[in-house]
Amino acid sequence: CKVCGDVASGFHYGVHACEGCKGFFRRSIQQNIQYKKCLKNENCSIMRMNRNRCQQCRFKKCLSVGMSR
């Protein structure tokens, strides 16, 4: 997965992504979610083991690796 490094389940929203990141991105855009501000200057490292800790940084990384509708 380009977002968290887990095993990708396919090509989702323009990038190779796992089911977790695919679902997270889908919910984020469909529900237009505004995530809580990052407590670490929006510089969190997103990996499989910690991908749920900072939703703002995870969504930012989804966009930075090329995920789009």
Rank of each mutant, 00 (worst) to 15 (best):
C57L: 03
H16N: 09
M47R: 11
K61S: 02
N52G: 04
C4A: 00
K37I: 09
R27P: 04
V7N: 12
H12C: 06
V15I: 08
H12V: 05
Y35F: 14
S64L: 13
C18E: 01
C1M: 09
S68H: 08
N52L: 10
S64P: 01
N43Q: 11
K60L: 11
V3F: 02
K36D: 07
S68C: 11
A8Q: 01
C54A: 05
S28R: 00
G5Q: 06
V3A: 03
M47A: 12
F59T: 06
A17H: 02
F24Q: 04
L39Y: 12
V3R: 00
C1G: 00
K2Y: 03
S68M: 12
C18P: 00
N32R: 07
V65L: 03
G5M: 10
Y13V: 06
I46M: 11
E42T: 04
F24W: 03
R27L: 10
I46H: 10
E42R: 04
E19V: 04
C18Y: 01
N43V: 10
L39F: 05
N43K: 09
Y13M: 03
A8C: 06
Q31K: 08
N52H: 09
V15P: 04
Q30N: 07
Q55A: 13
C1T: 09
N32A: 08
Q31A: 06
R69V: 15
C38M: 03
N50V: 09
N43H: 08
S68A: 13
R51T: 10
K37C: 06
D6E: 11
R26G: 11
G14C: 03
V15R: 01
A17S: 08
R53E: 15
I33V: 10
A17W: 03
N32E: 14
N52I: 09
A17N: 07
F25G: 01
R53I: 14
I46A: 12
M49N: 13
C54W: 00
K37P: 15
I29R: 05
M49P: 10
K36C: 07
M67K: 03
G14Q: 05
Q56P: 10
E19K: 12
R48F: 09
R53G: 14
L63P: 02
R53Y: 15
G14D: 05
D6V: 05
V15K: 03
R58P: 03
K37S: 13
A17V: 10
L63E: 11
S68Q: 15
K40H: 11
N32T: 07
N52W: 03
G23S: 15
A17C: 13
V15T: 00
K40I: 02
E42Y: 04
N41K: 12
F25Q: 02
F24E: 04
R26S: 11
C18H: 03
H16Q: 15
H12Y: 09
I29V: 10
V65S: 09
A8M: 05
C57N: 00
G5S: 03
G23V: 12
S68I: 11
C57F: 02
R69T: 15
R27K: 09
M67Y: 05
A8L: 00
M47F: 06
M67I: 04
C18G: 01
V3N: 02
Q56I: 10
G5T: 02
C18A: 06
M47T: 15
E19M: 01
M49S: 13
K2V: 07
V15D: 03
C21R: 10
R48I: 14
S45N: 15
Y13T: 05
S68G: 11
L63Q: 08
